[in-house]
Each structure stands twice: as C-alpha cells, then as structure tokens.
Design a protein around this nucleic acid. Structure first.
Lengths: 265, 265
DNA sequence: CGATGTCTTGACGCTTCTCAACGATCGTGG
DNA sequence: CCACGATCGTTGAGAAGCGTCAAGACATCG
C-alpha cells in the first residue's frame, strides 16, 4: 500500500515522474505522459493521475453516482455488480491491474453498476472533464480512447460468449484461461508454461455468479479438473499443470483415448 | 428500397436535406446535421451519410474486415455473429432501425463479428475518418460519440444479464420486452398498451442462439405464454395481450392464485 | 478455542437439451 | 391453379446436466 508515495497536488511534476516509473502496464500511461501538455489546467485542479487506495470490500462508485473519473486499476482486484430488479446483483466483470473501470457510465453520465474491491486495491483516476479537453487538443488521444472503450465492449461480448450454450466445465476452464491471460499481461514471470500459478482474488460464489452457475458447480468443476491432473487447487491458489488440456476442455473437445475410468478397474 | 433517392456525391447538399427529412429516429442525425460544417472534406470524399441497401442474408461486414464506416441501421433488421473456435457462430445481438452497427471494431480497427441482414434493410454509413476529424473540431460531438459507444457496451451487459441464471421462460419474456421497447422507440403507434403487435424479424433459431437456449425451448416458451393468455403467437407475429403478466414472467414472480393445472383436473 | 465464513462433497429432482417426427407456410415450377 | 419441395415451427419422449438442499471439512479471525 505504500510502494509509491502519495503526493496529492503540490509538487505535481514530481508526482508524475513517480507515477510514470510505476506505470509499466498502465492503460492510461500515455495520458499521464501527456500530462505536461495540459500541465497548467492539471495544476489548477490538482487531480490528474491521483492515486486512491481502496480497502477490501470498499466501493469505488455505486449505481446512480455521477461519473466524474475514468479509473485505472493499479493494484489489487475489483468486481462490478449490476443491481437486478429482484434485489439480486449480477456480477458483470472482474478487473485486474492495468484495466479501465467505470466505463458503464459513458452512456448517460451516471454509473449503473457498482465497483467493489475484492482485495486491498488502489486506482488512478483521471477526471473525465480533463480527458475530453485532452482529446480536443490531441485527436490521437481521442482515437486511443475509442479503442479503450471498444475494449470494454469486447470484454462484455466475451462474457456473453462464455455464457451462451457452454457447459459448466467449459465455463470454468474458459474463466481460468481468461484470468491467466489477463494476469499474464501484468505479471510476466508466471507465463503460459506448465506450472503457472494463478492467485484468484474472488470467492467461488463470485466466480459462480460471473459464470452463471451455482457455486457448488464451480467447485465440482475445479475438483474434476484436479482429478484429471489438469490443475492443482488449493483454495484460491490454482496451479496450471496441463495448459493444453485446459484449452481442450474450454473448447469442449474431449482428449480422445484419455479414458479416466482407469481409476481402479 | 426507393423511398429516398440515392444521390452519391455530385449534389451532396441536396442529398443531405433529403436524408434529414427521413432521419427522424436516426442515431447519427446530429452528425448529418453537422455535415455542412465539414462540407468541403465531405464533398471531396463524397461518402458522408451515403445510403446503402442490404438484401436479406447479405453481409454488411465480416470478421477481419477493416473498419471503415460507422453504420446506422435505417430500415430492416440485422444480426451480428461472432465466429466461435469450433465453427459455431454465437449470436451477439440484433439491431433495429436507429441503432449503431459495427462498434465491435473500435478496439483494434478490424471487425471481429459479421453483420447479416435478417430482412431487406438499408444502412447509412459515415466514414470513420470523417468522424474523428469532426470530433477534433467539435468536442461536443466527441462526447456524444462516447455516449453512443457506451450504449453499445450497455447492450452487451444487458445481454449478459439476460443470460445469467435466468430460466428459459424468463429469457424469452425478457427478449420480447426488449424487442418491444426497442421498436417502440421507432414505431410510436404500437405502444405498451395491450394488443401491441410485434413483428419479429428473426427465426426461432436466431432467438434461441441469442438467448443461449435450444430452439425447441424457445418455441415451447412461446407456446406456454400463449396458453396462459399472455401473448398470441402466429409465427413471427406476436401480439402482447397481457403486458403486466409478461413483465411478471420476466421478473420470475409467479402470479399467485393463478394455478394453471385447472386444465381438466 | 470457539465462531464464522468459505469451500467441498453427496443425494435428489427439475429444467432443459437432444433426438425425432410431424405440421405449417411459402415460393417455385409444371 | 395446384402440386411439390424447402424452410420453418411445433410437439413429444427420454436422458443428462445442473441446481437445490443439506451436511461436513477447512481455514481465518476475534
């Protein structure tokens, strides 16, 4: 929580350089890099790129909140929930470091979802107003923003494709692969090679709600994969033992000749 | 197909006024209204707001196509399909007049889906390049574009919420309600009052693929609603007889006291 | 050390999928 | 104009997957 010193306003230029040094995989890196371009406006507001800690269980925004910021998750993990008509809350997505949060408010300026920290986290926020003035001066930034927004839509479409006509085990396998992929962008060391370790930040229940399954079904799916030697499960720690088999499971093609009733007879 | 004369380039100003007259519910109306602002560039390219007919079954774009245009559906209906790894194509969405098509390419500039006309249709395309240059001169248009893009993300999130942990009948009811809502924006006369008529442009199979169900399940769901007196089904013509009951079904609260095993014993 | 939250495992029943046949509708051509 | 085929929609029976309920194992925290 104290790996990068907070430095709200005051010495903003120093703050920028500190931020940049820790901005490796940050989605908004180029906006921060552009910060000196609008340095004067930024200085006046003292908001640009401000770090904000978020304790586990804390909300970044809730439904109905006016969208003021575009957030990038810098550390930790978030989930976004949409309030259903019946009081239930649908789990629309997870966010890992480097990803944008809060795009659901683009359409009408108010958030429809709430974002909750799964673990202690911190975000960078750029005021939305700064962003639009930036794009006016620098059209290439506008195009880049379009790309980032498009990325958000694709994430939702991927979620849809995970849900449509896929069996429970496929969904769980796809989920693990997607988490692996998203963390890989951030943590380079635990690559796709066998033995990759995955530290899931969410509970089984959250996984289940995201996958449209009962939490027991998710648990069973993980157990079954472990029995097949594809993964090794220890709570939220998942070790990928057979990446190819995991992908095969996600594609729903059973590895032929791998009859697993060889358990004792 | 000939209700508005085509007029590519040449007399572009006349073309604009004609278009505007038929642009009532068009999502890009304000961009067309702005057209005179960039008249010179537009004239050079002769593309802005050009109408394009699309016969039933024809493709507007396919996966891998470079995104050149932002389309608005002006008449008819489209579906967008995403190619799955196994050859299957997931149905990601339907589009009715007034809605944007082709936003899936925002992220990387290439389409990932294909858009196919369900019935004879026509679209208006605005070259993407024109759009970005427009936003540079008019930041309020950029903000409006952000809104439209955000709308696309919300559509996908609605789709997710339709799929997560909802039973077959709920999904079908929600689907009917959403189609009703989307057409109501276009066709004012068939409002929410009982007796509203809905002319679905898609087959049962397409509905099923969108809803993540087997087509037989969709058919059975419609039949069951008809037996309950909620709707009247005649192929793709659906008449809404009891709007409240339809909404109750979508919310999964059974109308109490309405025991329908009174069929004979 | 007990309490609580989380995860796993088991048994049973229901929803939905699959397979299959039938019926309706529409367009085509004789 | 009617017969024909093709596409689309409906209906039925059986099976399988998954949800629900319930109990137990495990870890964490006060």
């Amino acid at each position: 929580m104290a790996d990068v010193p907070d430095n709200p306003a005051g010495d903003l230029r120093a703050d920028f350089s500190l931020l940049r040094r820790s901005c490796g995989p940050c989605t908004l890196k180029e906006f921060c890099d552009r910060a000196d371009v609008v340095y004067e406006q930024v200085r006046r507001r003292g908001l640009f790129g401000r770090r904000q800690p978020l304790a586990r269980g804390e909300r970044l925004f809730r439904p109905g909140d006016r969208q003021s910021m575009l957030y990038v998750l810098r550390g930790g993990a978030l989930k976004t929930l949409a309030p259903g008509a019946d009081g239930e809350e649908n789990l629309l997505g997870f966010h890992v470091p480097g990803e944008l949060v809060g795009l659901d408010a683009l359409a009408n300026g108010n958030h429809l979802c709430e974002a909750v920290a799964l673990v202690d986290s911190h975000v960078c926020g750029i005021p939305y107003s700064e962003l639009t003035s930036l794009t006016a001066d620098h059209p290439e930034i506008g195009r880049r923003l379009f790309q980032l927004f498009g990325r958000g839509t694709l994430d939702s479409q991927d979620h849809v494709q995970l849900l449509i006509r896929r069996q429970a085990d496929e969904r769980v396998a796809l989920f693990l692969l997607s988490m692996l992929h998203r963390y890989r962008k951030d943590i380079a060391e635990t690559g796709g090679q066998p033995g990759a370790q995955l530290a899931l930040p969410m509970s089984r229940e959250d996984m289940a709600r995201y996958l449209g399954l009962a939490l027991e079904t998710v648990s069973r799916g993980l157990t079954r994969m472990q029995e097949r030697g594809i993964i090794e499960v220890s709570g939220r720690q998942i070790r990928i033992l057979d990446h190819a088999a995991l992908e095969a499971l996600a594609r729903h093609d059973e590895p032929p000749g791998c009859d697993d009733q060889a358990r004792h007879g």
